[in-house]
Amino acid sequence: MVFVAVAGLISSCAKTEKPLPIFGQREVVNGDTVYHKVANFQFVDQDSAFVTNETFKDQIYVTDFFFTSCRTICPIMKTQMLRVYEATADIPDVKLLSHSIDPEYDTVALLHDFAKRLGVSSDRWHFVTGVKDSIYKIAQTSYFATAMEDKSEPDGFIHSGAFLLVDKEQRLRGKYDGTKEEDVNRLLVDINRLRKEYE
């Protein structure tokens, strides 16, 4: 009887403290577990500044893939990402990174105008363009997100509406549907859970 009660207490405590999952393959090297990490990248943001892994040093970030002329799911994703931007306004170690999957059309100038019109600052939300294949590759291999050209699609691309949560070790800790308000609510909760790991 007492044992059951104690076990119940323990499991109810454990429930609230359960850490977020770590996505991807892992291997054990010399007794240490090595997790899947975001590969090295270098893109250019709306202020013509280089954005690399180093930009997100000691930062948690949320990332997605979109393009400015997209009329299907992107406006909803941007509405939802704007919620994340506003909800994390007072959190210094959370940043946002939106990759254009139409980098030839989405020039720095165009992304600059887009961000300005959305009313967001490049200090906290980077909109990046770069070599198309590098963007598609990092989407698929680092973030497990879909992004590619497809002429049969109405706007010429297929891409997922996923938001990815990346921790300070550049490991993937969450995947959310950026077109669904409830899923983005879950992301906001998870950002706080993830931040607690660093306290």
Binding site: R71, P75, K78, F114, K116, L118
Partner: peptide, 15 residues
């Protein structure tokens, strides 16, 4: 509503 939103509020200075 994708762009103009269900609320009709649009999005920033984009829509």
């Amino acid at each position: 509503s994708n762009c103009h939103q269900k609320s009709g509020k649009g999005l920033g200075l984009l829509y």
